[in-house]
Design a protein around this nucleic acid. Structure first.
Lengths: 372, 372
DNA sequence: CATTGATATGAATCCTACG
DNA sequence: ACGTAGGATTCATATCAAT
């Protein structure tokens, strides 16, 4: 099932993974056509020799993977600049964002190039692992975290942020830039046909869930230029987003395809960002036009006896002048800034003072069909 | 009380704060004379289009408000490169380290320049604030952390790391790169004579305590080129280290001096890194030379009947060859790596097998005078 | 079946003093 | 500078076997 969500992005690429080079494949995508791009590039770890566990066995990290080998810091930086430029080009100019994950070996290069190219950092997020690999030899602090940079492609580009959804997911408190998430393991970890872990650096589902749920909408298009084991595609599909992936390794590509195809979309209040759905805007004169408030009514300021009438232009008339409800509310409150006009003005209904926000609620439900 | 600890560093500057420009003052210091340098540089406030201190005052050398973001970034990068080069020069080449603290506005530039100059990152530490300022407008994740980069001035420079001391401070577990510390408040916060907080970004004592206790020894010299309210000097003095500070703001300089002078050194097992004191190395032949083990004795491998004799070069003789105790121990254990020879070889004392580590203990105490 | 204990493992820039 | 011997070093969690 492919959902057409974008006029510019090639429909035949939606929800597929291209087997090929990251930069070449990115270059084929049209300008300004992607809602969000998530990238997990090689980290340029510069591992030397083998690390033994304290019991004498070998630790198997990324050692031996040629995709994490660069000639020098300069060549890594050039590689980073090249793919980030393409990312910047394909992201929508009006509203979109980029995520990049890395560790201390590479994230400072990535962050510097981002800023040099004019990306605008929104947050840096710390993935604090609850079960990091310990430092076997006691030579430094246990390297516990990886860092995600979240940025817009230009300073003026807007971005999606489902604030209330994340607050709800975080137990009612604002979600912060430090995320406690365990390393991917057990059943979540993709195995090859030999039962070995497919990819040395598979990211946890929960990490991608947070990234996608916080910064995209249903049916948005998410691009991952370093698809690896396919976590981005799998979670994107699971939560009702479109994706497009690029992976240059044939084995990873094959298993990622299988993994994504197995996924079933599961929509709920979080994936639909129900908590962030904003009620439609209503203007005061809409209520007058629709007769929810009568042109002849008096409006009362808070619980006081101060009243205003409705002017010919369907704003408030007070002491010889026309005002908007919020501006006059601010003035009467003795403040230099606007008050929330919907909360400070009351009308009489059934002999009781009722805030006009209640009238607006009724208008939204009955006239606009909005279900809070 | 000034302690002479270093031949090269000007003794008259020890435990003082210079009122003056950071870079000019750094240039006056000799090469390779500093054990640790801690820096809390001004941030790059891109939104203002100019370089600002965190308290809002303009930073020296940058004038006018018509800078575009790229020029601002370039200028900040050049400033960073300049002071980091001086830092690299004054740090000891054989053994020393650098700490820099920053937030996402500047830390990626700092980290990139560090690596470009050839510094070698040991860890990036996350100061995760337990009481961060909330994001009032709900426009992004609450910005919870600041980042500290810990690096050596070259790849081959050694560094001090009091591993066991930090493990002890962390309740017996390896300390990780994520530190939960509240922001500075209450009595800890320095006030000016008007009762107002002196500095907008005073770092918590606990943060500097961790930095200093983990990466320096008693009497080491710590330099802080952006001294601010003087936390680095105060904690350095408190835990028995020497310091030298630079601060260009007259008011901060004055209060930092007062603050530092009030401090009293308080030495304890943590500040003295008691847990990290290593027993003197002993070679197997030392025991033979001193007759703690007799040249004619047989050595038993673990509880088995396998024995070795002592060779003419006072190593072990087994099956026609000479070996060190650890190497032969490894081979007989069937491992490709060395075993701990002191634990796998036994001698007979009072008709019982005794590990030679016990003989070594006696030698350390009686001959070397070492008190465990 | 429930509980306990052994085993495996995760993006790692993972030793150092001495001759 | 470089080779070598000495010697110091791990945490949380999932899985699976054993009781």
């Amino acid at each position: 099932m492919k959902r057409q969500i974008n006029n510019k992005f090639p429909q035949e690429l939606l929800n597929t993974i291209t087997l090929g080079d990251t930069i070449e494949s990115l270059k084929k995508l049209p300008d300004s056509s992607v809602d969000m791009l998530f990238a997990d590039p090689p980290y340029n770890m510069q591992v030397e020799g083998t690390l033994k566990r304290t019991n004498g066995s070998n630790f198997k990290g990324v050692e031996g993977n040629d995709w994490d080998e660069f000639e020098s810091l300069t060549s890594y930086k050039e590689f980073t600049r090249t793919w980030l430029k393409e990312a910047q080009r394909v992201l929508k100019k009006d509203k979109s964002s980029l995520w990049v994950i890395g560790s201390f070996q590479n994230i400072y290069v990535v962050g510097d190039v981002l800023q040099e190219l004019g990306f605008w950092i929104i947050n840096d997020i710390v993935w604090s692992k609850t079960n990091p690999t310990p430092n076997f030899l006691g030579t430094k602090f246990t390297n516990r975290q990886e860092t995600l940079l979240w940025a817009t492609p230009t300073k003026n580009t807007k971005y999606q942020f489902n604030y209330k959804t994340m607050k709800e997911l975080n137990g009612g408190k604002q979600m912060t830039s430090v995320w406690d998430i365990p390393v991917s393991s057990g059943n979540e970890r993709v195995k090859d046909d030999g039962g070995e872990k497919l990819h040395p650096t598979q990211k946890p589902d929960k990490l991608l869930y947070n990234v996608i749920i916080s910064s995209t909408k249903i049916n948005d298009l998410i691009v991952d230029p370093f698809m690896g084991s396919g976590t981005t595609g799998a979670i994107a599909k699971r939560v009702g987003r479109n994706f497009y992936g690029i992976e240059r390794d044939e084995k990873y590509h094959k298993y990622a395809m299988i993994r994504v195809n197995k996924e079933i979309p599961q929509l709920d209040e979080f994936t639909q960002a129900k908590f962030d759905i904003k009620p439609p805007k209503v203007k005061f004169h809409d209520l007058v036009d629709s007769n929810y408030i009568n042109q002849q009514e008096k409006l009362y300021f808070r619980t006081s006896d101060i009243t205003a009438t409705i002017s010919n232009v369907k704003e408030l008339y007070f002491d010889g002048d026309d005002y908007g409800i919020s501006k006059l509310g601010g003035i009467l409150s003795g403040s230099s800034v606007n008050a929330n006009g919907w909360d400070v003005w009351f009308v009489i209904r059934d002999n009781k003072k009722v805030p006009i926000s209640q009238i607006r609620d009724a208008y939204r439900i009955n006239v606009l069909g909005f279900e809070g």
